[in-house]
Nucleic acid binder design. Structure first.
Length: 185
DNA sequence: TACTGGATTCACT
DNA sequence: GTGAATCCAGTAA
């Protein structure tokens, strides 16, 4: 029987692009909600990133790694990021997860019964998981937990060869699990 | 203090 | 495919 192990804090010292890719298939837990990460995006200090210009909001990208960075956007949605890069600026946006537990509660939060519409987008998963700005600045595995859960990866998603990589329109790198039904868009 | 636009989602055509 | 919803952070004055 394989054990669940938390991703150590030091796991996030690496570059955002590596962390974003490696986060695919990992398990995210908050309160009674959990899911498998199926889509991420890596931001560093390029033009498309908040890290391009360091401000009080984005400073966390430069000064920390392994911390939760939540910001509010378009007047209605939150986006969940995890800071990376020990000696530079970086963060990974969690864009979509496959729900594992707390699904009934997620349906209430999202006002839908459609399983595929619960967490298939950055704003959606924050609404489903009740993730808001109060989590901003907390450390990984303090309130939001990340597990290297190979058991679930093999049972629910498939082998790592199914991981797809795509260069987005602009600079950030997007990573997703090819063929997964819970991707955004 | 005022203005601008966004790492999105949803409804509608 | 297009546009509305909606508010906060960032910028300029």
């Amino acid at each position: 029987m394989e054990k669940f192990s938390l991703l150590p804090y030091s796991w996030f010292t690496r570059d955002a692009i590596k962390v974003a890719r490696d986060l695919l298939g990992k398990k995210i837990v908050y309160k009674n909600y959990s899911g498998i990460i199926v889509e991420t995006e890596a931001y560093t200090e390029d033009e498309a990133s908040h890290g391009h210009k360091i401000t009080p909001r984005s400073e966390i990208m430069l000064t920390t790694y392994g911390h939760i960075y939540v910001y509010f956007i378009y007047g209605m949605y939150h986006c969940l990021n995890i800071t990376t890069n020990k000696d530079s600026c970086g963060a990974v946006l969690i864009r979509a997860v496959e729900p594992l537990s707390g699904i009934q509660e997620m349906k209430k939060n999202r006002h839908t019964e459609n399983l595929h519409n619960l967490t298939s987008g950055p704003g959606k998963l924050c609404e489903a998981f009740e993730i808001g700005k109060k989590l901003n600045g907390t450390k990984v595995n303090e309130k939001i937990f990340l597990y290297d859960d190979r058991r679930i990866l093999s049972e629910n998603i498939g082998v790592s060869e199914r991981i797809g990589i795509e260069k987005a329109k602009h600079l950030p790198w997007r990573f997703f699990i090819r063929g997964n039904k819970f991707l955004s868009r």
